[in-house]
Write a protein that binds this DNA or RNA. Structure first.
Lengths: 202, 202
DNA sequence: TTTTGGTTTAACCATTTGGTTAATGCTATG
DNA sequence: CATAGCATTAACCAAATGGTTAAACCAAAA
């Protein structure tokens, strides 16, 4: 198997692993070098500093926190359908990258580093699309009256919180191995059900 | 005003501030000493090491992440009423301690430090109470059929996520100052409404 | 073969960091 | 007043850490 990986690729892979697991403050350049099986000086040769290497990794991973949701809201579906699609795609996606949420959340909450928020791929159009889509369906009497911002916060919270509180969840419910991901897989339908009930007109 | 504070109290106050804002890895003993306006050696005189000082702070704050919810579930209310009480009390409480969630979440997700989960005041009875309370009302036909574990995860996620994603929220919706807390205050009713709809029998 | 240019390494460096020590200060008790 | 004992401080220490440097390596071009 062609395990040919350039030095740069080896560094990026190792840096990703270490930064995702330990965050900026907890990460050590030496650990990255060891994991990449290269000399520590190479890290600076290729990326100059810890800050720059971290930025590189963050920018690469930030896209994953809010993956292609724009296309979901660009479709010609009902508001409810759009939320349902989001839930399914989002949980499926994060299941493949379960450490992204805690990495992003800790980074953007790091004091003095609010800079990183600007690096998140947050399009103003997203919130706009959400609101217009909701009000369209609301005026047609297809959804109940709720606050779309609060609903969005709720949906994201319901999807993402389990990944953040995973150690607690594992501990309290003695979850182990793939059981967590099965729980999240089952969660898709459950959260979709909740949203349907929330949006149902009386 | 009697500002008489023992050295130990000054240290604890400063340590709390620094650890909550920076986490264990990002915190510096010197910064704590400066903030407490004492000599760095005093930190070790009173608490021996950074680890022990951190543990002390964590144990003190951990109780705040799951405040007195046991009493809520011990009451003679309906399941729905209990969830409603939880939402109100929880958001009110965290509004007074908005940095607790990110502090707890980052700490328990720190690699090699899963020890801290044991320090969380998680009573097995809590989950137990939740389930029995749900099934009682379910058998009486008072609530719809849902998965109580998934609902619990959802309620906690809806309550706590905004505090974790607050920098994003502030950024996207140009929220500033107390507006965030007003949003959370309004959120109580909204989330309660969602739960009512979720639990409503058809 | 020689040279040229990027790549890699070992050794090194300055600073930071958690932690220690020995001396000093201070207060209460005999 | 003396002194015993805790509180406090300045100075110090060893290890860790991000970063640098100069020499060595190595493949491709001349």
């Amino acid at each position: 198997m062609g395990t040919e990986q350039t030095t740069e690729e080896k560094i990026l892979a190792a840096a990703e692993e270490v930064f995702l697991q330990s965050g900026f403050d907890g990460a050590r350049m030496q650990e990255i070098a060891n994991k990449a099986e290269i000399n520590k000086a190479m890290l600076h040769y290729y990326f100059r500093s810890k800050d720059l290497l971290f930025e590189r990794i963050f920018e690469e991973k930030a896209r994953y926190f809010f993956p292609e949701v724009n296309e979901i809201f660009a479709q010609e579906n009902s508001f409810e359908q759009k939320i349902h699609s989001f839930i399914e795609k989002y949980i499926h996606f994060i299941n493949q990258h379960p450490y992204i949420p805690i990495f992003i959340i800790t980074t953007i909450n790091r004091k003095g580093q609010e800079v990183f928020i600007d690096k998140l791929p947050l399009k103003a159009s997203l919130a706009q699309n959400l609101f217009t889509s909701y009000f369209k369906d609301f005026q047609e009497g297809k959804v109940a009256e709720i606050n779309p911002l609060q609903l969005a916060l709720s949906v994201i919270g319901m999807c993402v919180f389990p990944y953040l509180g995973r150690p607690i969840l594992n501990h309290v419910f003695k979850i182990q191995g793939d059981e967590f991901f099965e729980l999240m897989e089952a969660r898709i339908q459950e959260v979709q059900l909740y949203v349907s009930k929330i949006l149902k007109v009386d």
